[in-house]
Measured scan of single mutants.
Amino acid sequence: TELRLDINGREIKVDGADKETLKELLKLAEKNNDEKAIRIIRHLLER
């Protein structure tokens, strides 16, 4: 399955993203107070 998050109005594919990319996405999600995106990205970073 493909995991996509809508961050800042942009749909971004997050599964398969490297750790650096995920960290950047996490910063974006935190800036937007997007709890769902934050939770998902943190979960991916823990893998």
Rank of each mutant, 00 (worst) to 15 (best):
residue 11 E to T: 13
residue 27 K to Q: 09
residue 23 K to I: 07
residue 17 A to K: 11
residue 18 D to H: 04
residue 29 A to S: 07
residue 24 E to R: 07
residue 35 E to A: 09
residue 22 L to F: 03
residue 17 A to D: 14
residue 23 K to C: 06
residue 45 L to G: 02
residue 46 E to D: 10
residue 23 K to A: 11
residue 35 E to I: 10
residue 16 G to P: 15
residue 44 L to G: 04
residue 26 L to Q: 04
residue 44 L to R: 03
residue 13 K to C: 08
residue 1 T to H: 14
residue 34 D to A: 13
residue 18 D to N: 07
residue 41 I to P: 00
residue 9 G to M: 01
residue 37 A to Q: 01
residue 2 E to I: 03
residue 25 L to Q: 01
residue 33 N to E: 08
residue 3 L to P: 15
residue 46 E to P: 06
residue 43 H to D: 12
residue 1 T to K: 07
residue 18 D to I: 05
residue 29 A to M: 05
residue 17 A to G: 14
residue 1 T to C: 15
residue 31 K to C: 11
residue 24 E to Y: 13
residue 21 T to V: 11
residue 20 E to V: 10
residue 30 E to F: 04
residue 36 K to N: 14
residue 38 I to A: 13
residue 5 L to E: 15
residue 33 N to C: 10
residue 17 A to Y: 08
residue 34 D to H: 05
residue 5 L to F: 06
residue 26 L to M: 09
residue 32 N to S: 14
residue 2 E to P: 00
residue 10 R to V: 15
residue 24 E to K: 11
residue 23 K to F: 06
residue 6 D to H: 14
residue 30 E to S: 09
residue 37 A to I: 06
residue 11 E to V: 11
residue 19 K to A: 08
residue 28 L to A: 05
residue 4 R to G: 15
residue 35 E to G: 06
residue 12 I to S: 02
residue 24 E to W: 07
residue 46 E to Y: 06
residue 46 E to A: 08
residue 10 R to Q: 14
residue 29 A to K: 00
residue 13 K to R: 12
residue 37 A to E: 01
residue 29 A to V: 13
residue 26 L to I: 06
residue 6 D to P: 02
residue 28 L to W: 12
residue 41 I to F: 00
residue 30 E to Q: 09
residue 10 R to F: 12
residue 36 K to Y: 06
residue 17 A to M: 07
residue 26 L to P: 00
residue 22 L to C: 02
residue 5 L to D: 15
residue 19 K to M: 10
residue 4 R to P: 15
residue 18 D to F: 04
residue 20 E to Q: 08
residue 17 A to Q: 11
residue 19 K to Y: 10
residue 28 L to F: 11
residue 4 R to Q: 15
residue 27 K to V: 09
residue 37 A to H: 03
residue 28 L to P: 00
residue 9 G to Q: 01
residue 47 R to H: 12
residue 38 I to N: 03
residue 15 D to Q: 06
residue 7 I to D: 05
residue 3 L to H: 15
residue 20 E to P: 05
residue 38 I to L: 08
residue 30 E to Y: 07
residue 3 L to A: 15
residue 21 T to C: 14
residue 38 I to F: 02
residue 20 E to W: 03
residue 36 K to E: 12
residue 21 T to M: 13
residue 45 L to F: 02
residue 33 N to P: 05
residue 44 L to Q: 09
residue 41 I to Y: 00
residue 36 K to D: 13
residue 26 L to S: 02
residue 35 E to Y: 06
residue 14 V to N: 01
residue 21 T to F: 13
residue 26 L to Y: 05
residue 9 G to K: 00
residue 9 G to D: 03
residue 27 K to F: 07
residue 34 D to N: 06
residue 23 K to V: 08
residue 13 K to V: 14
residue 19 K to T: 11
residue 21 T to I: 10
residue 21 T to Y: 09
residue 27 K to T: 13
residue 40 I to G: 04
residue 39 R to G: 13
residue 26 L to H: 04
residue 2 E to F: 03
residue 41 I to G: 00
residue 36 K to F: 11
residue 3 L to I: 15
residue 46 E to G: 07
residue 3 L to N: 15
residue 18 D to C: 04
residue 33 N to Q: 08
residue 40 I to Q: 06
residue 2 E to M: 03
residue 37 A to C: 05
residue 19 K to P: 06
residue 40 I to W: 02
residue 4 R to K: 12
residue 13 K to H: 10
residue 27 K to Y: 08
residue 25 L to H: 03
residue 6 D to W: 05
residue 13 K to N: 11
residue 40 I to T: 10
residue 24 E to G: 08
residue 29 A to T: 03
residue 18 D to Q: 03
residue 38 I to C: 03
residue 31 K to G: 11
residue 14 V to Y: 01
residue 43 H to W: 07
residue 21 T to H: 07
residue 20 E to I: 07
residue 35 E to C: 10
residue 32 N to H: 14
residue 6 D to V: 15
residue 31 K to L: 12
residue 33 N to F: 09
residue 32 N to I: 12
residue 8 N to A: 11
residue 7 I to W: 04
residue 15 D to S: 08
residue 24 E to N: 09
residue 27 K to N: 12
residue 40 I to P: 00
residue 7 I to A: 01
residue 24 E to L: 06
residue 27 K to I: 10
residue 28 L to T: 06
residue 44 L to P: 00
residue 2 E to L: 03
residue 2 E to H: 08
residue 9 G to L: 02
residue 2 E to K: 03
residue 44 L to W: 15
residue 44 L to E: 07
residue 37 A to G: 03
residue 34 D to Y: 05
residue 27 K to W: 08
residue 14 V to Q: 01
residue 15 D to H: 05
residue 1 T to F: 13
residue 8 N to K: 01
residue 13 K to Q: 11
residue 5 L to G: 12
residue 43 H to V: 11
residue 20 E to T: 08
residue 39 R to I: 13
residue 32 N to P: 02
residue 16 G to I: 15
residue 45 L to E: 03
residue 3 L to T: 15
residue 17 A to N: 14
residue 14 V to E: 01
residue 45 L to H: 02
residue 47 R to M: 13
residue 4 R to C: 15
residue 31 K to Y: 11
residue 16 G to Y: 10
residue 21 T to G: 11
residue 20 E to S: 08
residue 14 V to S: 02
residue 14 V to R: 01
residue 28 L to C: 07
residue 15 D to K: 04
residue 30 E to A: 10
residue 22 L to Q: 01
residue 29 A to D: 00
residue 46 E to Q: 09
residue 45 L to Y: 01
residue 1 T to P: 15
residue 7 I to C: 09
residue 47 R to S: 13
residue 37 A to F: 02
